[in-house]
Amino acid sequence: MSINEYMSNKHRECDDVFSQAENFVAEDKWDEAHKHWQQFHGELEEHLTMEEAVLFPKFEQATGMTEGPTSVMRMEHAQMRALCDKLANAALAKNKEAYLGLSETLMILMQQHNMKEEQMLYPMTDRVLGDSGPVIQAMENHDS
């Protein structure tokens, strides 16, 4: 499996849980919503850390680009985290309107970010790193 395939699958998994949480909020089912929101939040954080701690450094090492695409990606991760904080508050306060406005924003932001990674960054990483096995292994072993 290439890094691109592996990471893209992770993105899809996150999307699924995220949508489930949002659907429950829309139906005012806050208990389930909360459960799924927390699951999503955990999975997303794990994914972001995996990239920042393992994948990006490997890319930067191989290409010598530290100020390039990965720095933009790190910045976008910070923005996603800021939105997640607000979403967590909205979920706690059971504020449906705020939650749906924020989740729409995070969704689009996340999809845009994922698209850049899946179409540019991951394929490039696959090309510069060659063998994807050890990298995927390192990401799986990484404790976030």
């Binding site: 910045m75 923005q79 800021a82 904080d85 309107e97 406005g101 924003t105 689009i108």
Partner: peptide, 18 residues
């Protein structure tokens, strides 16, 4: 978001999509 970048206070003051 671009202009709020790197400022935590500004980032949390952004209006959402809705």
């Amino acid at each position: 978001q671009q202009s709020a970048m790197n400022c935590f206070q500004a980032m949390s003051a952004l209006p959402n999509m809705h």
